[in-house]
Simulated scan of single mutants.
Amino acid sequence: MPQSVARMSLAEFLAQPKIEASPAWELIDGRVVQKTMPTLFHSRLQRNLVNYINYRTDKFEAVQELRCIVPPYSPVPDIAIIAGHRLGDEDEPFNGAPDWLIEIRSPDQSTLDLQNKILHCLINGTQLAWLIDITRQQIWVWQGDNLPIVFAGVDLLPSLDILPEITVDAVMKMTSRK
Score class of each variant (00 low, 15 high):
F13R: 10
F13S: 02
P17M: 13
W25R: 08
W25N: 08
R31A: 09
V33L: 08
K35R: 12
P38L: 08
H42C: 02
H42N: 08
H42L: 11
N48A: 04
N48D: 04
V50P: 01
V50S: 04
Y52I: 02
N54M: 10
F60Y: 15
Q64A: 15
L66D: 08
R67S: 10
C68L: 03
I69M: 15
Y73F: 15
I79P: 03
A80T: 02
H85M: 09
R86G: 05
R86E: 12
E90D: 14
D91E: 12
E92N: 09
N95P: 01
G96D: 07
W100N: 00
I102C: 04
E103N: 02
R105Q: 12
P107L: 05
T111Q: 04
L112T: 15
Q115K: 10
H120F: 11
N124A: 06
Q127N: 11
A129S: 14
D133C: 04
Q137C: 10
Q138Y: 01
Q138S: 00
Q143L: 05
G144E: 03
G144M: 10
G144T: 06
D145F: 12
P148L: 03
F151W: 03
A152V: 06
L157V: 01
L157Q: 03
P158V: 11
A170I: 07
A170K: 15
V171E: 02
M174Q: 12
